[in-house]
Simulated scan of single mutants.
Amino acid sequence: MLLAFVDESDHGDFHCFGAVLADESATKGLTDQLNALMAQANVDYGVPATTDFHAHSMFHGKEAWETVGRRARANLHEKVVDAIYGSAVTHNSPALGGAEGHAGGSAAACVAKLPRPHLGV
């Protein structure tokens, strides 16, 4: 059985929808990696260990990320994307350039095809 993790964004004329599918093993592995990243963010920057990785909050320094510098937030965001990309997740999004059922971080590869945001750092 696969688990689906879905997110959407709507900003006027820009609409985005993404999903990552993963079996139990891939989900546990990725969760462990993300938890380790958050534990380190807690040690390094005082971000509560229960904080979720939300790109909007991270990029704009909102909520738990307000005291973390821009470079640190951008670096941590890249580590999150790298963790997803390197995991055994699957996506099913030929419209985004992926093959149906392609494994090996292809969902994150779709994200990686987008230009990296410039934070002015």
Rank of each mutant, 00 (worst) to 15 (best):
C16E: 15
G97V: 05
K113I: 06
H60G: 01
S87F: 03
T31V: 02
A107W: 00
N35I: 02
V111C: 07
K62V: 06
G101L: 03
A108H: 03
D23R: 02
H15A: 12
G61N: 00
V20I: 15
H91L: 12
P94V: 01
H102G: 11
L30H: 03
L119Q: 13
D23F: 04
H11R: 14
T27E: 11
G86A: 06
H118Q: 13
P117E: 06
E8Q: 07
A109N: 12
A22N: 06
A88K: 14
T27I: 02
M58V: 15
V43Q: 15
S93L: 11
F5Q: 04
W65P: 04
E24G: 08
W65I: 02
I84A: 05
A19Q: 12
G105W: 01
G61W: 00
G101Y: 04
A74V: 12
D44G: 02
E66Y: 09
C16A: 15
L21C: 13
A108D: 04
N92G: 04
N42Q: 11
G18E: 14
V6K: 09
N75V: 09
A4S: 13
G105E: 00
D44E: 12
A112S: 11
V43I: 14
G29R: 04
D23S: 03
F5Y: 13
G12W: 03
E63I: 10
R116G: 07
E24S: 11
H91D: 15
F53R: 02
V111H: 10
F59C: 08
E100P: 04
A39F: 07
D82F: 03
L114C: 10
S9T: 14
P115A: 10
P94L: 09
G69C: 09
E66F: 10
D82R: 08
S9L: 10
A74E: 10
A112M: 15
A49W: 00
A19K: 09
E63C: 07
G18A: 14
T27Y: 07
G105N: 00
G86K: 04
F53S: 07
E63P: 00
A72N: 04
P115V: 07
A83R: 03
L114V: 03
A95I: 10
L30V: 02
A99F: 07
L30K: 08
N35T: 11
E8G: 04
G46M: 00
H54M: 06
L30G: 08
M38R: 14
